[in-house]
Design a protein around this nucleic acid. Structure first.
Lengths: 336, 336
DNA sequence: CTGAAAGCGCTTACAG
DNA sequence: CTGAAAGCGCTTACAG
């Protein structure tokens, strides 16, 4: 690999001149620029990005940590959409994405911290907001740019974030079901320790209140985002068939599929006897029978917006601020 | 951010001593080690990875390029499985993954080249093998470690690669269908310019030959990996219902779903009148009705094996060599 | 076991 | 517009 020095020798200029023609912003006479470019071509020179990073203290890289140990993480459509959004704007703005694994939620901020502390990235996007782990707090102590995908915990209300309108969107789904005549509506959340699930629960309660409906405690259940969790939720919510829900809202499609299976086993027809709405509009939703109505969450757009916000802040040299709420939309199919 | 210098001052040692305690492999008296560690803790010091990379000429990072402009890429289960495999072993071996986008197959090697030429990664895994773009050739001119996920093109037979047994696995599926009594079997490939699709076609031809079956040219069709492509393939393969296929093998599940839709519209029952096998065992396969039999390709394991191979070579300071063929397995459901 | 020095390959303020 | 120098923050061969 040739260096700036080799090129300088070949072109008979000072290394700093070579640097100037490659960094773009500098006054260089056309003649020497050509000479340098020619020499660089001959020597197959490309500036070493690591050396440049060290010198300018900027890596043109943003970091993200993925909990690679959770199989479900890769089965859900959240992950690919997240990556698509991140990559799309990184590409557009000339950045690269540095991805690290982590073996649990505790480890997430350890890994993120490591990327930041060792200066491997100029900023980081954080994707998990758990109520039980203060990832955001840990990360903020470094004052490296950070943006959160999801709602921030109460004690960090001023961190920059972008998320879907989880609470409102869920409320609307409940109102929609109520309008269809349902009075006993169940909420099947994912992991109760994740903040999305809590927001959706609030939306559910809002919607029920809005529609003037009572809520029975047994209509609120958690399936931990798994197909089997949805299946079990059916069991738990239908101990007493007389007062059992006539509609289910599930916080992801996988659980909705489990609910569908549970209902079917009990000989309950969907949508004839019970209605069902999922979340995320995953690829399978359209191909089920009945087609699963699902709340489509714009994860790709969310990730893209977060990345823009992060890079804006990096380039201005400040901490990102403000937030953005993107709208989800209900895709109606046959399950209601 | 404090540097090695600050810590040295605080601990009253030479900066090189601080470096030694952090790089691990060096004889350091326990007393000074403690003093340095203590100083580092007080100053909240972490070694700058970029500076280290420049010095040791190693980044502990491997690169991969993702064609982020193709929507279908993020809908298929290939992508998340690929990422899972890469991340899993990167994590295990202390590496990070540097991901870049690319806006087409031509751009893929441009981006990959850029990562390598600018020394942002110690090696790279290449995922697309197109017959029309010589990505591998371009990349090999740099002698940075490279491993290919997929079969190499003929002119680069000696590059390191790992892939599924596409040809054999497809042949087995055809033989299986033949055993079930099918004599007119169709092959619906993806993009004819991708090498997987060609390998599967060979497997199809092998299988038909093995079973002593004739092949009609119109039974070979291409759906470009899209649902609609599968749908159209039904149209093109059934101009003459009398000699139309009684079984279809599709190179991904999305096309199989399209085929299912096409057959249904023509009032053809699956599996009653026509059998169907897809590929990739995507999450929807299990939830269709009839459940879709599908060839499960171990992409996660393939990516993991490729990453190990790459990192092994990087750490030995040589070019990776050899290859690995992982077995696919047919998941039987109701569509046959 | 520890120090002093040179080097990794760039960038950029300072002169001219 | 171009050169000479110092610096980004580490590592490591060489002495002792």
């Amino acid at each position: 690999m040739s260096t700036i020095r080799d090129v300088a020798a070949q072109a008979e200029v000072h290394p700093s001149t070579v640097s100037r023609v490659f960094s773009g912003n500098a006054q260089i006479s056309e003649a020497t620029r050509q000479r340098v470019l020619e020499a660089a071509r001959e020597l197959n020179f490309q500036p070493n990005a690591i050396a440049r990073s060290l010198s300018v203290r900027r890596t043109k890289t943003i970091g993200v940590i993925v909990p690679h140990v959770f199989d479900g993480y890769f089965a859900d459509s959240f992950f690919p959409q997240l990556m698509a959004g991140l990559l799309e704007v990184c590409y557009e703005r000339g950045y690269r994405l540095l991805v690290g694994g982590c073996d649990g939620y505790q480890d997430e901020h350890i890994q993120a911290l490591d990327i930041l502390a060792t200066r491997q990235a100029d900023g980081i996007v954080v994707t998990s907001s758990r109520l039980d782990v203060d990832t955001v707090g840990e990360l903020r102590r470094h004052n490296t740019p950070l943006v959160l995908i999801g709602h921030p915990p109460a004690q960090h209300a001023d961190v920059a974030w972008v998320d879907a309108d989880n609470r409102t969107a869920t409320r609307r789904v409940i109102e929609y079901l109520a309008q269809k005549g349902h009075r006993r509506i169940a909420y099947v959340g994912g992991d109760p320790d994740s903040s999305v699930v809590k927001e959706r629960l609030e939306g559910y309660l809002d919607g029920m209140a809005q529609a003037g409906l009572d809520v029975q405690p047994e209509w609120i259940d958690y399936g931990y985002f798994a197909e089997d969790g949805g299946y079990q939720a059916v069991e738990r919510t239908r101990r007493d068939e007389a007062s059992a829900p006539t509609a289910y809202y599930a916080a992801n499609d996988l659980m909705a599929i489990g609910i569908l299976r549970g209902l079917r086993e009990r000989g309950i027809d969907v949508p004839g006897q019970v209605s069902l709405v999922g979340t995320n509009d995953s690829p399978e939703a359209a191909h089920l029978s009945p087609g699963l109505s699902s709340l489509r969450v714009p994860y790709r757009a969310i990730a893209a917006a977060a990345t823009h916000r992060l890079i804006d802040a990096i380039e201005k040299g400040e901490q990102p601020a403000g937030h953005e709420l993107l709208e989800s939309c209900l895709i109606e199919r046959e399950s209601v």
